[in-house]
Computed example of a mutant assay.
Amino acid sequence: MKDGNFIDYVKLHVSSGKGGSGSSHLHREKYLEKGGPDGGDGGRGGHVILKGNENLWTLIEFSFKRHLKAGHGGNGSKQRSTGSDGEDIYIDVPLGTVIRDTDTEEIINEVTSHNEEIIIAEGGMGGRGNWHFKSSTNQTPRYSQPGIDGQERNITLELKVLADVGLVGFPNAGKSTLLSVITSAKPKIANYEFTTLKPNLGIVKYRDFQSFVVADIPGIIEGAAEGKGLGYRFLRHIERNSTLLFLIPCDADDIKEQYDILLDELRRYNPELLDKDRLIAVSKTDMLDEELKAELDEQLKEDFNGIPYVFISSVAQTGLQKLKDELWKILNKDPEA
């Protein structure tokens, strides 16, 4: 997915360095014509290493640089001198990056902490010099080992946004507007579907200088689990959120039906998403008078059967403190409870 400077999916071709060749040098000095073998070992080829960087939030660096190659190891030399190791290449990636083998689709690893290092392609070993092969029956071996070739592989980097709360809703449900009023984020807002084409993160300032992170993610449509609309490009970002906030406007034809559709798309993508804590925010309630709101409240108590929900209006900025309180309560509940 690409929008502006935000890129969360790239394919790379990486190559580690070849090991240096061992030396088959024979020791020579002015008064020593037939010295023994003293060829040194070749140096190790450079590794390709992924490194977590908490200051990054996008994979844009790889937009125009898809081939990455580490340095080759140096050859061994006389006096048993070992060749220099090839230069390792470090690839800084945002936290929450999943590394996948492009050819097999197998997940290799994922980066979740700052300065965490993961070797993606190991450099080839250097060859051994001829002094290793000296024996009682072969005093002057004139052969050595070549270096081992490095590895080449195709990898895919997928960024999954790390946030405490993920906003879930249909396109144009008002997620970006809500994020803009409860955080200092400045997401793009307009009255048409798929205004949000990339995840937006915002920090919600809570009481006593505490805070938590909310991610506004592109809206779901029916069939998203099969790739329709923004499909799984959106859904994978939800996997990192500990709590899901479902945003459904009060003027929806059927609030419970919209909730069920959203829940079903999550289930079809990854059933484990249903184990996450949930909160429902019924938005745009500034359009309702107190009588209609009371009727809707009674209906939702029956429909949601214990699932917590709150009434909010991002425009009128009502119910927002209660929303923050409920989210904070969920995020900090006792896991044993």
Rank of each mutant, 00 (worst) to 15 (best):
Q299S: 11
V310E: 08
D41Y: 13
T82R: 12
G17A: 01
K301W: 10
E326H: 13
D334T: 07
K322R: 08
V14T: 05
S15L: 10
I221W: 00
K65E: 14
T195K: 03
R100P: 00
I307K: 03
G39D: 03
T137E: 13
N53R: 07
G19R: 07
H114F: 13
T112G: 07
D325F: 10
N172K: 06
K293I: 01
E29W: 12
P271A: 10
D3G: 11
G127K: 03
P146G: 12
N305L: 13
D41V: 09
A316L: 09
I119R: 14
N115H: 15
N115S: 14
R278H: 11
I119M: 07
D303F: 01
E152N: 12
Q79Y: 09
A225Q: 04
G229I: 07
A173H: 01
F311H: 01
E298Q: 13
K256H: 06
E87R: 14
L327S: 04
D88H: 11
F62Y: 07
I107Y: 00
D3C: 11
A224W: 00
L201Y: 03
S135V: 01
L235K: 03
P37M: 05
L68E: 02
T196H: 14
F6P: 04
S314L: 00
L274P: 04
R28L: 10
E257K: 15
S313E: 08
S313K: 06
L327R: 05
D101R: 10
Y143R: 09
N130S: 11
L197D: 08
K228D: 15
D101G: 03
G71V: 07
L263F: 15
R236N: 08
S211P: 01
E291V: 12
N332S: 03
S77W: 11
V93D: 04
D253A: 10
H67M: 09
A224H: 00
Q151V: 09
K34Y: 15
Y90A: 00
L320D: 04
I155N: 07
Q321S: 15
S180E: 10
L56P: 02
K11W: 05
I307V: 05
S314W: 00
S23W: 09
E257V: 07
V204D: 11
M1N: 14
V161M: 12
G223H: 04
F212L: 10
I248D: 05
T285Q: 06
G83F: 14
V282A: 02
V168S: 04
T82Y: 08
E336V: 04
